[in-house]
């Protein structure tokens, strides 16, 4: 009898590593940082002329308005989903729902308006960085000004983290980092390495008094 296939997170093997690191950092005074994996969700890449984006049937099908301001995101379906600004006529829609029917429903609305909706759920995976030091960690390999004043919750940005292209999503409690699947192992290694900065200094080395 064939074994039952169970879907797993593409970064499953990093779960115990990130959990152990988070537990270790929790014991370090003055450090507020927790690392984890973003749950796998459906993702749809939406292309649509921005002038069509506010029409009632588009807003109704989406369950909310698309962000028109660059580098921001909005909530869909009362917070169940997110619409992330990728470009002047491109958005990434993310929600925990079946991807196929969602893609079909969106395409039925934006298709006649010259737009496109494509299921890209397998394209990206991601990490959750939580705590006040999430932005400090990212700042070690990202040129953007990530301080809350310039990158407040509700912001998002496609940029480079280390050598990998990422999509940073600022939330109330930290930052979500979406990355293309083929760069995910590199980024996991980069994050684990960067997090070394927050480990306690071994006894002796920090004593300069």
């Amino acid at each position: 009898m064939a074994d039952t296939l169970v879907p797993t997170h593409p970064l499953e093997r990093y779960l115990p590593v990130l959990a152990a690191l988070t537990e270790e950092l929790a014991a370090v005074p003055g450090v507020d940082l927790a690392l984890g994996l973003l749950p796998t969700t459906a993702a749809v890449d939406l292309r649509l002329d921005a002038r069509e984006a506010t029409t009632p049937d588009v807003v109704g099908t989406l369950g909310g308005r698309l962000p028109s301001t660059p580098n921001t995101w909005t909530t869909l379906d009362d917070g169940e989903g997110r619409a992330l600004w990728l470009g002047p006529d491109e958005w990434l829609l993310v929600a925990d729902r079946p991807a196929g029917p969602w893609e079909d429903a969106l395409r039925a609305v934006v298709g006649p308006r010259g737009g496109a909706a494509v299921d890209v759920s397998a394209q990206r995976t991601g990490f959750t960085l939580r705590g006040a030091d999430a932005r400090e960690l990212l700042a070690l390999g990202c040129a953007l000004d990530l301080r809350p004043a310039s990158f407040p919750p509700g912001s998002c940005a496609q940029t480079l983290l280390g050598q990998a292209g990422v999509l940073l999503v600022a939330v109330d409690t930290g930052v979500d980092v979406l990355v293309r699947r083929s760069f995910a192992d590199y980024l996991a290694a980069w994050l684990l390495d960067a997090a070394e900065e927050f480990r306690p200094i071994p006894a002796g080395e920090g004593d300069r008094a």
Binding site: P70, N71, G87, P88, Q158, T159
Partner: peptide
């Protein structure tokens, strides 16, 4: 023109 000031390496 869309995203604002970004690092040269992004271009």
């Amino acid at each position: 023109p869309w995203c604002g000031p970004r690092e040269e390496t992004e271009f």
